[in-house]
Amino acid sequence: MSILGSVIILNFKNTTTEILTSGIDTVILSVGATEQFGPYLPMHLDTIIAELYADAYGRELNAYVLPTIPFNTSEEHANFKGTVTVSPNILTAMLEEIICNLLRQGFKKFLVCTGHGGSYWERSFVKHINYKYPQIILISANHNNHMAWEAAVEAAGFHDLSEMHGGPLSICTAMWLCPELVKINSMGSDIPTENRLYADYLGWDKLTLDGCWGKFEEGIYSHEELAEKGKLFWTTFIQKRTEGLKQILEEGYRRKTQE
């Protein structure tokens, strides 16, 4: 347990006594992924990103931060060796079980976040849980996602960023968060615009050259510049998504549970 000002930050490394005496009633559920990121990047990038979200949201909401689940709905990448994908039914059933367990212990407010852009189940899950369990609230941090993305792109100095997965942003992210695991090489290719029509229907082994939806060219930036771009992007993006989060959670809970 650590304390920043009056904010108590708790996670799964704390004791049950510390969690009990804290009075915290909010939980952060985060989901990453284990999926290919082209030929030269590690497969846990989405999990690291989800951990960044969880830590930032936990601090903002004074919440109990659970460990990040490292598997997700990664069907589009499933033909690349090493990728793990689970069905949305299994994933959301497990998350609901976790919520129910913690509900019985007195937790009332929940936030779910995911580091994987293909987590289409997230919005439906939030609606379902809020309908099924009137005594609690579950939110996500997507209230200003578009503005956050634009601000982050500008802060990092990306121009004409058309990447969906495994392009320059992914390289910069890895160079900031886990540079020791990165093999810097040119990768990816320019993907025909019409391929977007099939991105949710076909495996990306049929739509991309090497699994990357975006093109990275080695030698344009130094390793340090790549890492700095990754840092600027994600710190800006997460900061913007964190703004107003506490108000949404507290006001949403009040409105939902008031008589």
Rank of each mutant, 00 (worst) to 15 (best):
I129L: 10
I248K: 15
S186Y: 04
N195T: 03
V84C: 01
I28V: 13
L161Q: 07
K215C: 13
L161R: 08
V112A: 12
L197Y: 06
I69Q: 01
E122H: 02
E194Q: 06
H44Q: 09
S222K: 06
V86F: 09
G203V: 01
E250A: 01
T73H: 05
A50M: 09
E35T: 06
K132I: 00
F110T: 05
D205F: 02
G252V: 13
Y57W: 12
L29R: 00
E224H: 06
N72D: 12
G252L: 14
L202K: 12
P42I: 00
T208I: 08
P42N: 08
A50I: 11
H223C: 08
L45C: 02
S2L: 11
V7H: 05
K231R: 15
P88Y: 01
R254W: 14
Q135M: 05
A148Y: 11
N145T: 12
S119C: 07
I24M: 01
G211W: 13
E76P: 01
G211R: 06
T68Y: 07
K127V: 01
N101W: 04
V65Y: 03
N79V: 00
V65P: 12
E194T: 00
R241F: 05
T47L: 09
A54Y: 10
S87Q: 05
F158K: 05
N145S: 11
S2P: 01
E243R: 04
G219N: 13
K215R: 15
I238C: 02
E250M: 09
C178D: 06
G23P: 12
Y201E: 13
G157S: 11
F80N: 03
G157L: 09
G157T: 06
G118A: 11
E194I: 07
L95P: 05
T34M: 07
T257W: 13
A93W: 04
I238P: 14
I19A: 02
